[in-house]
């Protein structure tokens, strides 16, 4: 999403990085991000409950909700667009308490997650759902680091270069989905 107000973000993110962002800001994310969706989140939470360490330290990191399609020969990854985020809501507040700073997905988050983002200073960003082929072009490296048995749901460490996203929920509690819908609603 190219536009005049595009903010470059490099991981890991600091509190200052996320506090400076507002719902509606376009961002281009570069650096390392981690993939996790339903099954991986369940396992991460089980590790946290048992006091074990996670496959990656969540402090300052971004989780991208994605289950990519397999990489064809000669390619780094297959299609890799975002999956719907609400399914990760039950697991998210705990990860935010551990210092997770950002999430990339699509779709609305629960009140609990939104409150946890305000409390723990974190942001939620949307990527274009269904633009999997386009998203694969910004991924420069992909490596499974945990849960290989989960196939598409394994945790991958991705190196991304200018991954385009838009801030939906900021640290002040704003929500771009609510604002956007209201703006174009015809009553």
């Amino acid at each position: 999403m190219s536009s005049s107000h595009v903010i470059g973000l490099t991981t890991p993110l600091s509190v200052k990085d996320v506090e400076g962002l507002r719902a509606g800001d376009r961002v281009l994310i570069s650096g390392i991000i981690y993939t996790a969706r339903d099954a991986a989140h369940k396992r991460l939470l089980s590790l946290i409950e048992r006091g074990k360490s996670l496959p990656f330290p969540p402090e300052g990191q971004i989780i991208y909700y994605v289950g990519p399609s397999p990489a064809p020969p000669g390619r780094i990854i297959g299609a890799a667009g975002p999956t719907t985020s609400y399914r990760m809501d039950p697991y998210t507040p705990r990860l935010l308490e551990l210092g997770l700073k950002g999430m990339i997905g699509k779709g609305k988050r629960s009140t609990q997650v939104r409150e946890a983002m305000v409390k723990n200073k974190a942001i939620y960003m949307a990527a274009i759902g269904g633009a999997g082929a386009l998203m694969s072009t910004v991924i420069k490296e992909a490596k499974v680091i945990a849960y290989e048995d989960l196939g598409p749901e394994a945790i991958r460490r991705l190196t991304v270069d200018q991954l385009p996203a838009i801030v939906v929920n900021d640290t002040l509690g704003n929500d771009l989905y609510e604002d956007g819908e209201k703006r174009y609603q015809i009553i």
Partner: peptide
Amino acid sequence: SEVGKEILDKLLENAELASANRIPICQDT
């Protein structure tokens, strides 16, 4: 909506890219 227009442009670009690079339009096949 400006954002909406950009998204629709990207979706069209995505469809072209998928077909040219022979990768799925969406990872959820």
